[in-house]
Computed example of a mutant assay.
Amino acid sequence: MNLNSQTDSKDQRNDRLFHYVVKSCAIFVLLIMLAASFSMIWSGKEAFQTFGFSFIWNSSWDPIEKNFGALVPIYGTLVTSLIAMLIAVPVSFGIAIFITNIAPKWIRTPIATAIELLAGIPSIIYGMWGLFVFVPFMADHIYPWVNDHMGTWPLIGPLFQGPPIGLGMLTAGIVLSIMIIPFVSSIMREVFATVPTPLIESAYAVGNTTWEVIWDIVLPYTRSAVLGGIFLGLGRALGETMAVTFVLGNAHQLSLSLLEPGNSISATIANEFTEADSSIYLSSLLALGFILFVVTFIVLAIARFMLGRLSRREGA
Rank of each mutant, 00 (worst) to 15 (best):
L118N: 11
A119H: 10
A119I: 12
A119M: 09
G120P: 02
I121S: 04
I121M: 03
P122N: 05
P122M: 09
P122C: 10
S123H: 12
I124P: 08
I125A: 14
I125D: 04
Y126L: 12
G127N: 10
G127A: 07
M128P: 00
M128F: 13
W129T: 02
W129F: 14
W129E: 02
G130F: 11
G130V: 09
L131E: 06
L131P: 01
L131W: 05
V133M: 07
V133N: 06
V133W: 03
V133K: 05
V133T: 14
F134Y: 08
F134D: 01
V135M: 06
V135R: 04
P136F: 14
F137H: 12
F137Q: 09
M138L: 07
M138T: 10
A139L: 02
D140T: 13
H141V: 14
H141G: 03
H141Q: 15
H141A: 15
I142K: 03
I142Y: 07
Y143C: 03
Y143E: 03
P144S: 05
W145P: 06
W145A: 15
N147M: 08
D148G: 10
D148F: 06
T152K: 11
T152N: 13
W153S: 06
W153H: 08
W153D: 00
W153N: 01
P154A: 02
P154W: 01
L155A: 09
L155R: 03
L155H: 00
L155T: 13
I156V: 15
I156M: 04
G157P: 06
P158G: 13
P158L: 11
P158V: 13
L159P: 11
L159Y: 10
L159I: 10
F160V: 09
F160Y: 12
F160G: 04
G162P: 11
P163L: 12
P163H: 14
I165Y: 01
I165F: 00
G166I: 04
L167V: 13
L167C: 03
L167A: 08
G168N: 09
G168F: 11
M169W: 04
M169S: 11
L170D: 06
L170Q: 07
L170K: 07
A172I: 05
G173D: 09
I174F: 13
I174V: 15
I174A: 02
V175T: 01
L176E: 09
L176T: 12
L176F: 08
L176V: 09
S177V: 08
S177Q: 07
S177R: 03
I178N: 02
I180Y: 05
I181A: 11
I181D: 03
I181S: 03
P182G: 08
P182K: 03
P182M: 02
V184Y: 02
V184P: 05
S185P: 01
S185Y: 00
S186W: 01
I187A: 12
I187L: 14
M188A: 08
R189D: 11
E190A: 14
E190W: 03
V191N: 01
F192K: 02
F192N: 10
F192S: 06
A193Q: 06
A193K: 05
A193V: 02
T194A: 14
P196N: 12
P196L: 13
T197K: 09
P198A: 03
P198G: 03
L199V: 15
I200R: 11
